[in-house]
Design a binder for these strands. Structure first.
Length: 291
DNA sequence: GTCCAGGACAACA
DNA sequence: TGTTGTCCTGGA
């Protein structure tokens, strides 16, 4: 891969296993929006970025090499060899063989743990467009204005201290629904205990999930998502309705419970469970499998 | 107006 | 220890 800077952009030439649509629409993130030219614009790590792929070139627009090295290289998980991961998964069975071809450009983003904690609390019993709207509202009302890009204003996700200034009513006014009390209580817990959830990356997977489940509004599925997408715990397997459908379609009996599906998958996919989950989720959701 | 999609939690057996 | 009703919102 050749990496160079030109015109306020960083170009990744010959980058493998990288497709914006696959990355931003596999259920792991909520702040990226598709533009008319097929690129995606979003806010992450307090920066506005636009991502466009043209053949074997990926353009990271509105950034420079310094930011790329400090932020985006890790954010896009570029140190991980997805060719190896897919090869291992492909050998496991025909479904993963198909799913890894279908979502060939998926990468698991290294997102901020605190943002994932609140985002996935909002995700519970909620649909993606509504989750996106609530997170945007929270950011506009309680985060920092970062700047304008192509005629739109962008705001950073609020810090624990910023969000803690919001009342439960103000949180609900951001269209969080009944999850307002979960967000309020979790934010209060983080601030009052001076709890840096980013440090949870250093815990082992089971401890990490157990700690996350202590927060109000965080159950098994939400904890798995936070651990996988915000804390680099790749050996876990969040089971949402789509993953349940695809697992029942291809692997397990119709009446298997969610925790048992999870255990089954982790036994089978091991250290690559989180990656398998992403390929299967994207495959199931795009094709409407099991509906 | 009615139904449905989406997990956590409290109350219950 | 597992099961059931409730929570909120927008789109069909």
């Amino acid at each position: 891969m050749k990496i160079y800077e030109e015109n306020n952009a960083v170009v990744l030439e010959g980058v493998e296993n990288f497709d914006p649509k696959h990355i931003f629409e596999c259920g792991q993130c909520f702040r990226w929006h598709r533009q008319e030219n097929g690129s995606y614009t979003g806010v992450a790590m307090g920066k506005i970025l636009n991502v466009l792929r043209e053949d074997d070139k990926v353009y990271l627009n509105n950034t420079n090499l310094e930011e790329f090295n400090n932020i985006w290289f890790n954010y896009f998980n570029l140190g991980v060899n997805y060719t190896d991961i897919k090869d291992t998964l492909k050998k496991m069975d025909e479904y993963l063989d198909k799913a890894t071809d279908f979502g060939w450009g998926i990468r698991i983003l290294e997102q901020d743990g605190w943002e994932m904690l609140i985002s996935f609390i909002i995700s519970s019993n909620n649909r993606i467009p509504m989750i996106q709207k609530a997170i945007e509202n929270l950011s506009r009302n309680f985060g920092d204005f970062i700047g304008e890009y192509e005629g739109k204003d962008y705001y950073s996700f609020p810090t624990p201290e910023q969000l803690n200034k919001a009342t439960q009513e103000e949180i609900r006014a951001c269209q969080t629904g009944f999850r307002d009390k979960y967000i309020k209580s979790t934010t209060e817990a983080v601030v009052s205990n001076n709890d840096d959830v980013r440090k949870y990356t250093g815990l082992d997977t089971n401890t990490c999930i157990k700690e996350l489940t202590k927060f109000n509004g965080v159950g098994p599925k939400v904890a798995d998502c936070i651990a996988l997408f915000g804390m680099r715990k790749y050996d876990t397997f969040p089971v949402d309705v789509w993953v349940k459908r695809v697992m029942q379609e291809f692997y397990v009996a119709e009446d298997m419970s969610l925790p048992k599906i999870r255990t089954y998958a982790i036994d089978k996919f091991g250290d690559l469970s989180g990656f398998a989950q992403q390929y299967l989720f994207y495959y199931a959701r795009e094709l409407g499998i099991g509906r």
